[in-house]
Simulated scan of single mutants.
Amino acid sequence: MTTTVSSEARQGKRVGLVGVGLLAVLFVVGLLWAKWLPYAAKTSTMATTHTWSGGAIFAKAGAPGSAPSLSGAWHFTVAYFQSVWPAAVVGLALAAAVDALLPKAWLLTALNRRSRIGQSLAGGAASLPSLMCTCCTAPVAVGLRRRGAAVTASLAYWVGNPVLNPAVLVFLFLVAPWQFGVVRLVVGALLVFGATTVVARLARPQVSPAVLAEPLAPVRVRDLPLRYLRSLARFTVVLVPEYLVVVLLVGAVSGWLSDFSELTTHLGVAAVLVCAVVGTLLVIPTGGEIPVVLALTAAGASVGSAGALLIALPALSLPSMVMVGRALSWRVTAAMAGAVVVTSLVSAVVLSLL
C-alpha cells in the first residue's frame, strides 16, 4: 500500500513538472512574440525620439464628442483588435494552460498566502512579466480564480498587468514629464497591493478542503494535451463572443465619451470625477492612455483630469469586467471598479500637487 501511494505521488509530481514546463514554454514563447520583443523595439525608438507615435484610439470611433454610430463602433473595434489580437491569443493560451496544466495545489501554494497582503503581493508580482492590458489578462485572471486562487491574488494579477506594466512605465518616463511616471507607479501600487485587499473582503471564503485535497496533477502525461485543448475551447467559446460584443458596444460610444478636453470648461472640478468613471469603462490597448493624457496636457486641460485617466483608462474596462464577473462575482467586480475610480481621484490630486 505504501509503495503504491509513493509511486502515485512520484508520478503525480512528474506529470506536474511536465505541465509546469509546458506552461513555461507557452509563457516565454507567447510573450516574446506578443509583448517582449515588440516593446523592446518600441522602447528603443522612444529612447531616441522621446515622442509617442500615433494618436488616441478613440479617434477611430469618430471626432471627440461625436454621436454614437455603428460606423464608429466598427472602425474602433477593427483598430482595437488589430492592436491587441496577439496578446489576446496569448492570454487565452495561458488561461487554458493555468486551468489544464498547472497543478492546483502548486498554484495555491504560490498565490494563497496566509494574509491578504501576502496574496496581493504574490498576484501583483506574478503580473509584472506579462505586460498585458486589462482585457487580455482577464482570461488568465478567470483561470486563476476557477483553479482556487484567492480573490485577492486574482484581483492583483488582473489589475497589476495594466497598471504596473513595466513597459508602459518606461514609455511614460521617456515621453511624458517625470511626474506622470512617478504618480502611475505610486498610485498604481496603492491600487494593486492595497485596494485589492480591501475589495477581497467582499468575497466569500475562497478555498475549500476539497480543493486542497485534489491530486497534484493528472495521472498520465498523455492526458495533458486533451485537457489543454478542452480548456482552450471552453475559454474561447465562453469569453471571446462576449468580449467582441462588449468592445463593439463600447466602441459605439467611445467618440462621444472621450471628449475629455472640453470637460473642464463645462464641468469644472467635477470633470475629474467624470474622467475617473468614464475612463474605468472605456477600453484601450496597452499604453493607449499615454496619447490621451499627453494630448490633454498639450491642450491646456486640467492636470487633474489627466491624472485620473492615467489610472482609470488602463486599469479596467467594461469588456474586461464582463469577462471576469462570473469568476470573481459581480459584487467583487463592481467593488474593484469603484476602487479604480477612487484611486484615479487620488492620482488626480497627487499629480495636481506635483
Rank of each mutant, 00 (worst) to 15 (best):
K104E: 13
A100H: 05
G123S: 12
C136E: 15
A87P: 00
L111E: 11
L121T: 10
G91N: 08
A97R: 09
A138V: 06
P129L: 04
P103V: 01
T137Y: 00
C133W: 07
A96L: 06
G124K: 10
A93C: 14
G123R: 06
A100L: 07
A87L: 12
L128Q: 09
P139N: 01
A100I: 02
L131A: 12
A126H: 02
M132G: 03
S115Q: 03
A138Y: 07
A97N: 07
P86A: 11
G143M: 07
I117R: 06
K104M: 10
M132D: 13
T137W: 00
G91D: 10
D99R: 15
G123M: 08
W85C: 01
P129V: 07
L94E: 04
M132A: 14
A96Y: 05
A87E: 15
S120P: 04
W106T: 09
L121E: 09
L94I: 08
C135H: 06
P139C: 09
A138G: 08
C135I: 12
A93Y: 01
S127M: 03
V140E: 04
A95W: 03
G123C: 11
L107I: 04
N112S: 10
P103E: 08
A126C: 12
I117F: 13
K104W: 03
V98H: 01
K104S: 09
G123W: 02
T109W: 13
Q119M: 02
A122I: 01
A87K: 02
M132I: 00
R116A: 13
S115R: 07
A88W: 14
L121Q: 06
G118I: 03
T134E: 15
A95K: 01
A110E: 13
T137E: 13
L92Q: 06
W85F: 13
K104H: 05
T109R: 11
G124Y: 01
P139L: 12
R113V: 00
V142D: 09
G123D: 11
R113H: 11
Q119K: 00
A97M: 07
V90P: 10
S127E: 02
S130G: 01
L121M: 14
S130T: 14
N112D: 14
R113N: 07
R114G: 12
A100N: 05
A126T: 09
A105P: 00
A110T: 09
S127R: 06
T134R: 00
T109P: 00
P129Y: 03
R113P: 06
W85G: 03
M132E: 14
M132C: 11
V89S: 04
A93R: 07
